[in-house]
Amino acid sequence: MLLGQLVSVVTLVSIENFRKKRRKVRRFPYTPAVPMDVGEDELTIYSYGEDLFAHMLEAIDGASEVIHFETYIWKADEVGQRFKDALIRAAARGVQVNVVWDEFANLVVPRRFLRMPGSLNVMRHPAIPVPWSPKSWGRDHRKLLVVDRKVGFIGGYNIGSLYATGWRDTHARIVGPGVSELENAFIDFWNLHVKRRRLKKLPDDLRRSWISKIRVHRNMPKLRVFPIRNMYLEAIDRATERIWLTHAYLIPDDDLVNALRDAVQRGADVRIIVPAQSNHVVADWLSRGYYDDLLRSGIRLFLYRGAMVHSKTATIDGTWATIGTANLDRLSLRGNYEVNLEILDENISRQMEEIFEVDLRNTYELSLEEWRTRSWVAKGTELLLSPWRPIF
């Protein structure tokens, strides 16, 4: 069986790599980024990378005190170089620049690109964890930027030219006191991992509000803390009208599937947008193993066409929303370092619903009848790979 699984994976990856070389970047509909007031903060939601990157670089170029920059993937292309140059310029004018990236996610990135000058404080999350220490196994899947304690960015966008125009993702910018929550997330991660590196701890003297419409939830594998999964389960359990999810990789555990099924039985309209083809072909096949159960339960699935949808978002009952880095899979919810915003605001929820409806224009709905007519080869491959689902 293991040999069959390995042969299937190699075959799928080879076919997908061939297709990627021939695949063209296509335009897709997106929603303009409009700032909105949320309590004492201003929140802007981005669904197009070029707009987001322009504002991130503008914030870096305007920094005068401190920059915290954290990413999962950092490509050595035009966009990646622009971010590198901007951070180096900031350090040259006296700004404290703290940078974190995940080494495993960037194994294919040229080493010369990832060599940073000594003016930057750099923390590389190790590609190979300590084998006998499971607490160190989590990947740093977070994407954060905090500048001068005034503006913060969080979401699904990695750094690279493809993500600027070729991927449909979602990111948020916070301006106001809520930025301290993002900065605290960065500082806690930095100080937790700084002990064995030639780096200094960052001061943890932030003043954070007890009451806010915007909350930050952080998965911290080293501390065995995974609140984002519980955040989703609690929100889904409250739903009475609609649950609209957009996710790059849909490999939910039984509790999440049951919670969504229960919501349908309460009369909620449950819709999920996923890629028709994602950038990880094995994840696609593992995800498809859940489609029959989800569709039979009355959960509606919409497949995004022509581009990779990489968002990790949800909006429920026109009241609750989340934007962040965590996918609905075990790696994100029980394994990786992740950060999600939880937003309780009707205006933001309404805007998230509008974004969802725009995305729906670029999807087609998968019916149970259509799904059951797929080939026996496809069904057999899904069954063969099914034992891998608990890993992902």
Score class of each variant (00 low, 15 high):
residue 302 F to P: 00
residue 313 T to F: 07
residue 302 F to H: 15
residue 289 G to M: 10
residue 353 E to K: 15
residue 279 N to M: 06
residue 321 A to Q: 07
residue 294 L to W: 04
residue 326 A to L: 05
residue 287 S to C: 13
residue 342 E to V: 06
residue 360 L to V: 11
residue 329 D to R: 00
residue 331 L to A: 11
residue 344 L to R: 08
residue 325 T to G: 05
residue 283 A to D: 13
residue 348 I to F: 07
residue 351 Q to F: 09
residue 294 L to C: 10
residue 284 D to Y: 04
residue 308 M to L: 10
residue 279 N to W: 07
residue 359 D to Y: 06
residue 342 E to S: 11
residue 286 L to T: 11
residue 310 H to K: 07
residue 326 A to Y: 03
residue 289 G to R: 04
residue 314 A to L: 05
residue 307 A to F: 00
residue 346 E to T: 11
residue 294 L to R: 05
residue 288 R to M: 15
residue 298 G to M: 13
residue 284 D to F: 07
residue 335 G to S: 11
residue 307 A to M: 03
residue 309 V to S: 14
residue 279 N to T: 09
residue 326 A to C: 03
residue 340 N to T: 04
residue 302 F to W: 14
residue 299 I to P: 02
residue 304 Y to R: 08
residue 349 S to V: 06
residue 280 H to E: 13
residue 287 S to I: 10
residue 320 W to N: 02
residue 311 S to N: 12
residue 326 A to H: 02
residue 299 I to C: 01
residue 292 D to C: 10
residue 296 R to K: 13
residue 344 L to P: 00
residue 313 T to I: 13
residue 318 G to R: 12
residue 295 L to F: 13
residue 284 D to S: 08
residue 361 R to H: 12
residue 340 N to E: 07
residue 287 S to N: 11
residue 334 R to V: 04
residue 300 R to P: 00
residue 281 V to P: 02
residue 354 E to F: 08
residue 285 W to R: 09
residue 302 F to T: 01
residue 343 I to K: 09
residue 309 V to G: 11
residue 294 L to M: 15
residue 306 G to H: 10
residue 308 M to S: 06
residue 335 G to K: 05
residue 309 V to Q: 14
residue 336 N to I: 02
residue 313 T to N: 14
residue 308 M to H: 07
residue 303 L to R: 15
residue 297 S to F: 06
residue 329 D to W: 03
residue 326 A to R: 06
residue 311 S to R: 02
residue 294 L to V: 07
residue 357 E to R: 15
residue 360 L to E: 05
residue 316 I to G: 05
residue 301 L to A: 12
residue 340 N to C: 08
residue 289 G to K: 04
residue 321 A to T: 13
residue 302 F to M: 13
residue 299 I to D: 02
